[in-house]
Write a protein that binds this DNA or RNA. Sequence first.
RNA 1: GCCCGAGUGGCGGAACUGGCAGACGCGCUAGCUUCAGGAGCUAGUGAUCGCAAGGUCGUGGAGGUUCGAGUCCUCUCUCGGGCACCA
Length: 837
Amino acid sequence: MADYNPQEIEAKWQKRWEEARVFETEADPSKPKYYTLEMLPYPSGTMHMGHMRNYAIGDVVARVKRMRGFNVLHPMGWDAFGLPAENAAIKNNTHPRVWTNNNIGEFQRTLRRFGFSYDWRREISTCEPEYYRWNQWFFQRMLERGLAYRKKSRVNWCPKCCTVLANEQVINGGYCWRHEDTLVESRELEQWFLKITAYSDQLVDDLKQLEGTWPERVITMQRNWIGRSQGARVKFEIADLSSVKPIEIFTTRIDTTYGATAIILAPTHPLVTRLLQGSPVREQAEPQLARMRQTSVKTADLVTAEKVGFFTGRHATNPFSGEKIPIWVGNFVLMEYGTGAIMAVPAHDQRDFEFCRKYGLPIRVVIQPSSGEPLVEEKMTVAFDEHQNGRLVNSGPFNGLSPDEAIAKMTAFAEKKDFGRGEVVFRLRDWGISRQRYWGTPIPVVYCPDHGLQAVPDKDLPVLLPPNPNLTGEGESPLASTPEFVNTTCPKCGGQARRETDTMDTFVDSSWYFYRYCDPHNDKAPFDSTKVAYWFPIDQYIGGITHAILHLLYSRFWCKVMRDLGLVNHNEPISRLFTQGMVLKGGVAMSKNRGNVVGAIDMAEKYGADTGRLYTLFAAPPEKDLEWNEEGIEGSWRFLNRVFRLVDKHAGAIRATRNWNFDSKGMTDKERDLIRVAYQTMQRVTQDFETRWHFNSAIAQIMELTNEIYLAEPLENGVRPEIRKEVLQILTLLLAPMTPHIAEEMWEMLGNTDGLWNAPWPILANEQLELAKDNEVEIPVQVNGRVRATLKVPADANELDVVAKAKAEPAVARHIDGKRIVKQIYVPDKLLNLVVQ
RNA sequence: GCCCGAGUGGCGGAACUGGCAGACGCGCUAGCUUCAGGAGCUAGUGAUCGCAAGGUCGUGGAGGUUCGAGUCCUCUCUCGGGCACCA
């Protein structure tokens, strides 16, 4: 009798897998491929059970597919650049590379300890020049095509990170994504941008391809983030200043133009200063403008701030009606969106309504609801902004049209008269990638006093990070104070030149890393396109919902750029996305900062990797958050011990037994029952793995099978050896994707000399399917929907027999005696319901 | 404000297309075993009335459809998440 010793067993099989190179894969067009991966981790601190759950889910997928005969690519790597490494290095007076590589070592050791089936030869680390040189190479391609450009603009600056953030990294209306309590400031800086907006339309349209295979909420979040709105641009001439060009406004409701009672400009609109020149209200207006421009810096406050504004003293002409309406400046109009100017239609837009009420501007109804009380201006308390329901009024020749008809007709009219046109506007902004920090990919350009901006030629890539930077964590990029980095020569004239000292956002690294796994050691190109063509698109991607916008949007963008460069031939990189839940402790996500982590290595040492894997899969369905419970893991540990004891007890006697040939002649009832349960469990578990991803209920089924076998003990009594072996082997195979080490060990104990890694996933033969069928079923008998008895009848019993038998049941008879049966519902093998009066 | 998602025992969670609600596990109770602790094994465990047989209630709440609803429809409450003066 041996005890279950996970430490020994796990080390033994990890070594065997490595020696047999079980998880190493090559592209092979003769086999069906399956590319699955989990989002690459940022190696900070140590791994906790939250990480582990993610990889456990991914490993089940990879192992099941492998057993199903797919050529499976399952790689792992490190998102190794980033601020925490730099900050930690400053704090501990070391180099970011040292800190990062220590962590990578720790992470790698932990992942190996858990026996995840990665092809480690393909491991990548984004902070290595072999990797980041291709970031630079891509940057040059984008620069050539105008997709990378430099401009001075207002950008988000995090005072704690001491760097610029992308719009996607600003959360909760103005806070840093890493420092959730730190307000982002607005600064005017020269920055590098990637022109993701060139792909706005495609990024929205192609979301349709992902419907059904990506979580709906990720698609919705991306759609909202890109924020495409169909509308129109309309010109309003400035009545008092004919020499100044007309004001252009953007609206999605051109049908309400007759109801416009003011034009409102953003405080930073370039026209504002010109309008105030010589204006009768200039004296009062200018201080207000100054105040507004100042307060607009804090974007977070905008949300709650009250609407304020002032009159410019000028008027504009409504191109439809010819009416003169006042031009105002309002703090709620954003320069960044649309044209930075709007027409205020207080009757049909809530914001305009509030603004106009406050400043006594008139309200004019131009859409009357088709049903209910007609609107009366003086009595309105909110704007009427529906456009499904209503008809135009007070709108000249457009009266009587529905808003949708009016939008089409009025846009056409504006185009004909040349004062407006239909336009699509996006919320998405270009991706600001400049970061004023050291630990990232250097942006590969130089500035020559004579030739200006020059790209570093491909042959000179990579532009390496200097080994000994001067890290302070303050002010401008550390690269700027590293003379041996900054001072260089112009690639055009060879004269003195200065390098760009900003580095790239680390989201550049993760935008294409999964392509590199296909060809990780290529030193001629980012990857060989034929290899990528074999593996891509990714069949299954697994990660947290936190990346719903950032990483997953950038990756989609990058894919489209690569397609246009002729490097890949697909539109979307990821066919199927799964977003798993977090592991919580005390109701919040595990994180080092909060000090509520359960270390993965600690768990492996205490219970073994298999128990840790099993528990994270069993405790909750994978998409849900999981509250960590130390008592729960004990249950998984007990279960594995129970299974191990069972196999250990029988192994000696059946080790040499030949596999059963499914001959059902002369089977005892006990044998039949056991085999049936085993095969039924197989069918259900297969379903749970393949189509439903219900790992938790798959495990519950396997536990039930184990309980059934225990109840049938002693098996030696009436169960022949080959059937004992069949049942125990099925139990072992079903566990293999989740708890691979103990499964291998038991497989060997049962007399198999060929590793379990070579075993195919069991698919039931016809004889087995026959044996899996129930020959007797239990049918609940209801009277008026209440269960009164349960009948045991043969499968496929006919209705008359069942009804007769049911009526004979005393508990049924009691409820139908003296009453009339008005209806009889019989669902074969399911239930019988008698409706009486 | 807008858009998603979720509400089932003491707890984590099952329930495929409407068909015995609470599988499986944790915890708890009792018994066996043990010097003891631990482990293991067996039985029980939604609430409620009843000595029992048996009955009634029960999936956040209120209605509805149906022979039958956790599941479908309408309204509503609570929690979680995302976006947010986006014109």
